[in-house]
Design a protein around this nucleic acid. Structure first.
Length: 586
DNA sequence: GTTAGGG
DNA sequence: CCCTAAC
């Protein structure tokens, strides 16, 4: 990551020599580092990872560094390289020590502040020259992060991705003495963009943060600070810049661009936040105690907090209109807001709370102006449907196939309703609309669902539940099957019916069966109690054949009188063979 | 986990 | 179809 920034020519060269991939900002233009920066010695491994340099390695470059810090030479060894990078770590302070600061954040947790500060951060245009590396950095380091972290990273790290030009900085404390204009210059030099902020304090903090966030690298116990070589432990007292050691690990993870769990990465970010905040204070020419100052600072810190859902919704629009390249990155790389999971394995969508899938407008990988309109009430379900498909079978095609095969092989008659009806219900050969129904069903199967058990097309709801996808009309085949099931197993034994008669209709739950039966009863009784000749075709939705309604009614009557009791109904149902029973009814 | 019933 | 109380 930015670690290289401080590494100067040394690291750069080494990186290039080793042909490090995108994961390292090897192409970053290097600039002269100035005194205030603390360096850490690292070795760049062949794979681009930064490894703490050994003491021996360190000693090799000591002379060079002391000799002329501005002209560090390249120390190269076969198989390994030694570079200098900024020291960002610090003495091991526990998170608990920083807890006070954390509490702090909560006070300013409201989304509006978040938004405002983020906008501030994101709005200014990043110089085109920096875009590549920025993208590079973001893509490589953050794409694997969960979407909600993107924003955080963007806001917190993007700035640091722009290589700071420390030459403008005359030393940390000097910020205090700078005029607004100078601060602007410094800001620009640091972040690669201009700022319109008028708040001197804010600027100073931002600059300080930008600098201090720049580099995080594991290192040996040696640190180079202001041309002096120090033992980490020794300088601990005087070195306020250093941050908690424990964060080193996290930083390392980031640098290595681990794509581990979202949690770990989140943790990293959180740690970063803390570090930043702490460090800011340490840099502190500014009094933290001042409420207004704090509020400013909190904004910047809070910026790092996980955005609230509402915040995301609201910001989405803003971001969408964001003209600068910045907006492009999040949308493209990992859009927390636009989890077009099509390209991404479902597993990357963490199951935890943070992954509420906002929407996946395009299954086909079509790109939609992310986030923008998220449903407040009920999320769309397509998303999870897809996710589920990917999840369970690695592809919907397989599922569909399985469904098809099953259906065709199904001993029952579903496939050919017309035939089935004929053989079952000799009296009603008028099942005209069978074909359309089939088509309908097939269509549904293709688009959203499949008959396999595992892949119920559902979508997470705000409450954490899952909701099934779009309405799935009952086909006549299903209705018939349901009726048969009821007649066989008895009304009320929905789970039984579901399991036995609707095994191939995974998308129909027992509740669905119950509901449908309820509707059937209503339909069968309401229009015309004795309506064999009833013509339901006027209904747009699946017209239920009169024969079926009749049977529904008969079954209802039968069950009504025969069994409030399940066992009784069950016995009744089981007593007769399917066809026999039907024949009797009909 | 199912079922029943309301929404 | 969803939600949820009741079982």
């Amino acid at each position: 990551m930015e670690t290289v920034a401080g590494a100067e020519g040394v690291d750069e060269t080494l990186f290039e020599d080793r042909g490090v991939g995108k994961t390292s900002p090897s192409t970053s233009p290097t600039k002269h580092v100035s005194d205030p920066v603390v360096y850490k010695l690292v070795r760049v491994e062949g794979d681009g990872t930064l490894v703490p340099a050994t003491d021996d390695e360190f000693m090799e470059v000591v002379d060079l560094i002391n000799d002329n810090p501005n002209k560090m030479h390249i120390v190269e060894e076969p198989g390994q390289a030694v570079g200098i990078s900024m020291e960002d770590s610090s003495s091991g302070k526990s998170l608990s020590e920083l807890s006070g600061f954390s509490k702090f954040e909560d006070v300013y947790a409201d989304a509006e502040n978040l938004e405002s500060s983020i906008q501030e951060t994101a709005a200014p245009v990043a110089p085109s020259s920096d875009m590549d590396q920025m993208k590079q950095s973001l893509d490589a380091a953050e794409c694997s992060k969960s979407p909600d972290q993107i924003r955080e990273s963007e806001s917190s790290c993007a700035a640091t991705s722009l290589l700071p030009d420390f030459s403008k900085l005359k030393g940390e404390i000097c910020l205090d003495n700078l005029s607004i204009r100078e601060l602007h210059d410094t800001f620009r030099a640091t972040f690669g963009r201009v700022t319109t902020a008028k708040d001197k304090t804010w600027l100073k903090r931002r600059i300080a943060m930008g600098l201090t966030n720049s580099c995080d690298v594991p290192s040996t116990s040696f640190v180079i600070k202001e041309n002096q070589i120090l033992k980490l432990g020794e300088e601990e007292n005087s070195n306020n810049v250093n941050c908690a050691v424990e964060t080193d690990q996290d930083v390392v993870a980031i640098n290595d661009q681990h794509t581990d769990s979202d949690n770990s990465q989140k943790k990293q970010l959180e740690d970063c936040q803390i570090i930043s905040g702490k460090r800011l204070r340490n840099y502190g020419p500014i009094e933290d105690s001042q409420p207004e100052v704090l509020s400013r600072e909190q904004k910047s810190v809070k910026r790092l907090r996980k955005p609230t859902r509402r915040y995301i919704e609201e910001v989405s629009e803003v971001e969408h209109h964001e003209p600068t390249g910045r907006s492009v990155i999040p949308a493209k790389s990992c859009g927390w807001d636009s989890p077009k999971s099509g390209d991404r394995p479902a597993k990357n969508v963490s199951p935890d709370r943070r992954t509420y899938v906002t929407r996946l407008d395009s299954v086909a990988g079509l790109r939609v102006p992310c986030i923008s309109r998220i449903r407040r009430s009920r999320p769309r379900k397509d998303i999870m449907a897809l996710v589920g498909l990917y999840h369970s079978s690695g592809g919907m095609s397989g599922k569909l196939v399985s469904k098809t095969s099953r259906t065709s092989s199904d001993p029952k008659k579903i496939q050919h309703q017309g035939i089935e009806l004929v053989e079952k219900d000799n009296q009603c050969m008028t099942i005209e609309r069978v074909e359309p129904e089939q088509n309908l069903e097939a269509k549904h199967g293709d688009s959203s669902g499949d008959a396999s058990k595992d892949n119920i097309v559902t979508v997470p709801t705000a409450k954490g539940g899952i909701r099934r996808k779009h309405h799935r009309a009952w086909t006549i085949a299903e209705v018939m099957r349901l009726v048969e099931g009821v007649s066989r197993y008895g009304a009320g034994r929905w789970s039984e019916i579901k399991r036995l008669a609707f095994a191939s209709y995974s998308y129909r739950t027992s509740v669905d069966l119950k509901d449908k039966w309820r509707n059937l009863l209503k339909a069968s009784f309401a229009p015309a109690p004795t309506d064999k000749g009833m013509n339901p075709r006027k209904h747009v939705s699946a017209p239920i054949p009169a024969a079926i309604l009749l049977r529904v009614r008969e079954l209802a009557e039968l069950h009504a009188q025969a069994s409030p009791n399940l066992s009784t109904s069950k016995l009744v149902g089981c007593g007769g063979s399917v066809n026999g029973t039907r024949s009797g009814y009909l």
